[in-house]
Write a protein that binds this DNA or RNA. Structure first.
Lengths: 128, 128
DNA sequence: GCTTATAAGTGAAATTAGCATATATATGTG
DNA sequence: CACATATATATGCTAATTTCACTTATAAGC
């Protein structure tokens, strides 16, 4: 990261694009809206601040396969239509449960970020 | 984590306590309020949802040492007063800059979590 | 003396992310 | 037809980061 050992400079690196584990709940939420394949999901992730050109495709595909392996998704190959075959993912009942768990975790995490930002603004008087 | 390969069940595990890299900005903010040593910071982290009994002390101390190594903090041994010696940390000018960078990153990340939660509630009608 | 609270660490394993690269199909262009 | 490009999925390896399990040491209380 940044070519340095520890990333302390958000500008040239992509620390700001690093939302570890956030990928998983985003994929689950997108898939709850309907079945989709990886490549399409990659474009729809932009909504959550994860633009395709800043993604590691490997991570997206690996996360999807792992979620399937663990029973939260399942997929079928779709060969109809032009281009290479797509793996069409659908959510399982367990996947929806997992999404609900994630929503709680994310709400809690947002509260933490809020706490930080409030304390920060209290000290530095930012009003943005 | 959870004793399983992939943590998917927030209840018995500490996924909800896992805010990767959030420790660093929290420590910086607390240290901006004044010099402090690790053990004390560990108790003050509770404010950000990081209660001492859910922390890995090793991570806290290592993070402080790393921040010092990189010039964002500096420390002196404090032997006065009862108990074992404390390493009293103070923030450097670079440390304060880093804190400001972190504040931007965290504001951005909160926006992402908000986006997720809004989309989630739009689908599931939560109003909490 | 023994236990507990305070205080700061280290070593090694497990997890997670990032980077580079591979593979394959279809489509458009000269 | 050859070649580049867009679509689509994936693997191998490395690096970064976290977690778990310990270790060391001082002082206070019983």
């Amino acid at each position: 990261m940044c070519g340095q050992n520890h990333c302390h400079h958000p500008s040239p690196c992509r620390c700001d694009g690093r939302m570890e584990r956030f990928l998983e709940p985003c994929l689950l939420l997108l898939l709850h809206e309907g079945p989709a394949h990886g490549y399409e999901l990659r474009t729809r992730l932009e909504r959550f601040g994860l633009a395709p050109d800043r993604q590691d495709p490997g991570l997206v595909y690996r996360t999807l396969r792992r979620l399937e392996e663990d029973g939260f998704l399942f997929s079928e190959w779709e060969t109809e239509g032009g281009g290479p075959a797509r793996r069409l993912y659908r959510m399982t009942a367990d996947g929806e449960k997992l999404l609900h768990e994630w929503a709680k975790v994310i709400a809690r995490n947002r509260a933490r970020l809020d706490e930080f930002l409030q304390a920060y603004r209290a000290r530095f008087g930012g009003d943005s």
